[in-house]
């Protein structure tokens, strides 16, 4: 394999793993559920993306590469949808985001409209 590709791949793997751990730390350290979502977002984007693309380069052009690409695509596609579903559920479940500066009536509105 090309030495440049090798270096690039290991670099990606390293960066990906680093971001995974940072995201994990974020999930533990950040103060409330909404802020923790940003930590999880790091895992889903940079962490997964880095590690998986590192693996892709390692694999060369085979069916493995294609499947890894599918997995990245799938995670990048589903992650925001799932995060949004969760955020919405939390908002409607009455969790107030910390440091809620602008007065929000979004959740109250959502509840009342659905209660009818």
């Amino acid at each position: 394999m090309d030495i440049a590709l090798e270096i690039l791949s290991w670099g990606l793997l390293f960066v990906g793993s680093a971001f995974l751990v940072i995201g994990g730390i974020g999930v533990v350290r950040l103060p409330d559920v909404f802020t923790r979502m940003h930590g999880a977002g790091i895992i889903d984007t940079m962490g997964v993306g880095g590690v998986m693309s590192g693996l892709m380069i390692q694999a060369g052009f085979t069916i493995v590469t294609i499947k890894l690409a599918l997995i990245i695509g799938f995670i990048l596609y589903t992650s925001p949808t799932a995060t949004h579903a969760l955020a919405r559920a939390a908002l409607h479940g009455g969790v107030r985001p910390r440091g809620d500066e602008t007065p929000e009536d979004e959740s109250g509105q959502g509840n009342s409209s659905s209660k009818t």
């Binding site: 596609y77 589903t78 659905s114």
Partner: peptide, 20 residues
């Protein structure tokens, strides 16, 4: 019915799942 209502407004979930 309520569920449906809340889902219809939630385009993100709907469009996301349609493709999936």
């Amino acid at each position: 019915g309520e569920l449906h209502e809340s889902m219809r407004t939630n385009v993100i979930l709907r469009v996301g799942s349609k493709l999936l």
